[in-house]
């Protein structure tokens, strides 16, 4: 578990006439065993927020703090595409993000591969697996580092609906079992409602427009009436905020 504190975060790309503001005065507090979704239209700065949080990009202004019991928190990341090393086996892809190759590390990697149902594919190369399996490897990789906080950037958006649904279930189970703080970026409101305790709504221009608490018991079935109603509520808020292009 980790505490994420974002204060007056501002991120720009380019200069002069080519200047693009990706994030504009973003303030966000996330802490504990929560699943927070960041929702918004394409190009509203959701991914940039994750990149700044993980240190891939530096903020232009403002402060970002991710701590775990007073020290810097260790992050895990699941990307939109699996981002596996094509020249390393599945197992070695997991080991790659660890500091050592000790027996414990291997054992742990094997365990998380098992959690995503790929224990017998460790020796395969990523190119020999299907897209869904590759994404599973990406999820196992992120969990295997036992991070304090897990960042996920539209991890299921490239997958077919059936695969995405089963992976969402697996993700929820793993989140529950491992008690992580998760920040999950998506443009799929249904997915956000199904998985999260809290939904942060981004608008074009990189500002936070709303912060919604979803107070429903887990596991949530998208076909369930309460879940459907919650989804409709969020979508209605989108309309009120004028986020849906007409």
């Amino acid at each position: 578990m980790a505490d994420i504190r974002v204060e007056h975060l501002h991120k720009e790309f380019g200069t002069g006439v080519e200047k693009v503001v990706a994030l504009d005065d973003v303030n966000l507090d996330v802490s504990g065993h929560v699943f927070v979704s960041v929702v918004g239209p394409s190009g509203c700065g959701k991914s940039t927020l994750l990149n700044v949080l993980t240190g891939i990009e530096n903020p232009t202004r403002g402060k970002v703090e991710i701590t775990h019991e007073g020290r810097d928190a260790f992050p895990g990341y699941v990307f939109q595409s699996p981002r596996l090393l094509p020249w390393r086996s599945v197992m070695d892809n997991l080991i790659f993000v660890h500091k050592d190759r000790s027996k414990e590390t291997r054992e742990r990697c094997r365990r998380y591969l098992g959690m995503v149902g790929l224990e017998d594919r460790g020796s395969k190369y990523p190119g020999e697996l299907s897209g869904g399996m590759q994404q599973r490897v990406g999820i196992a990789r992120a969990f295997s580092t036992e991070p304090d906080v897990l960042f996920m950037d539209e991890p299921f958006s490239h997958l077919d609906a059936i695969t995405a649904r089963s992976l969402r279930r697996e993700l929820h189970d793993m989140w529950k079992a491992t008690k992580k703080t998760v920040l999950f970026v998506t443009h799929d409101v249904g997915e956000a409602v199904e998985l999260s305790n809290r939904i942060v709504v981004f608008a074009k221009g990189g500002t936070i427009k709303d912060d919604i608490t979803v107070d429903l018991p887990f596991p949530r079935d998208p076909a369930d009436q309460d879940v459907a109603i919650a989804k409709a509520d969020v979508l209605r808020k989108f309309e009120e905020l004028d986020l849906i292009a007409t």
């Binding site: 993980t54 240190g55 891939i56 992050p75 790659f96 993000v97």
Partner: peptide, 24 residues
Amino acid sequence: KDLIDMSKAFRVSPGSRLRNVIFP
């Protein structure tokens, strides 16, 4: 770049990045 960003996000050391990403 996507793989290099990935290894940065996971705090992989520059040496390991060179051996496992850039050289291959």
